[in-house]
Amino acid sequence: MSKEIIVDSLTKIFTQGKSKLEVLKDLTFDVNKGEFICIVGPSGCGKTTLLKIICGLEEPTYGKVLIRNEPPNPIKHRFGMIFQEDSLLPWRNVIGNVKFGLEIKGYNKKESEEISRKYIEMVGLKGFENYYPYQLSGGMKKRVAIARALAIDPDLILMDEPFADLDAQTRSLMQRELLRIWFGVGKTVLFVTHNVEEAVFLANRVIVLTKRPSRVKSIINIELPYPRNRLSQSFISYREKILKLFHEEMGVSEFGT
């Protein structure tokens, strides 16, 4: 079977003057088409950098990333990248923001209008089309960013801690919503999080990274049917297993998550 993403001996070193920061070291894994992958690891371990290399925003120092056997190319490959930071255009209202990706991809006005409305409704923001980002809460902004990424019908959805600033209730709602979308369209999803429970709830496979310079510590297949029950014994044992790997990396002092 052809792989959707191949990450092969990927190393990323940031140089600033004489100091070098090795963020990713010899990272290797691959992703099948339609898979939902969660990447977890200690903060500062280069998860964001990994996503940026995969969607072509950063260049690898050594090694390579291939998307369907080609180097990442945002013009050719359709990436739906959802950044950790607020990435809405503050001068555009909700629908204007959702249209942005469609404009870049060359959809005409009528199409982008229709598609945007559909995705705004999907993320539960119907009625907010004409609101500006400053009028929205953090969670709503995130949902606009998700709608914008999904609207272009991406081949690959890349999400960088998308639900980190959401309250627990919205977060759980968005997780279920994301799974629903994923079931519906069968997209490949790469989802970065530091929340182990979230990873077990969402992913086919969870990739655990070591602390910086990050390598792949472990890849765990989550063999649980969807929708998953967070209280089931098997769910909890997966969570414990990954948490243990995670805490080995973080040192003993950090719990939570």
């Binding site: 925003l57 990436f79 990248m81 990435s87 942005f100 870049i104 272009i152």
Partner: peptide, 27 residues
Amino acid sequence: NILIQMAKSFGSSRNQIIYKIIIPSSL
């Protein structure tokens, strides 16, 4: 910078970044 990266991730050209991101944001 995050807005420019966002535009790039959608495959924006240099001109699109100038006209759709840089100019409106500096107005």
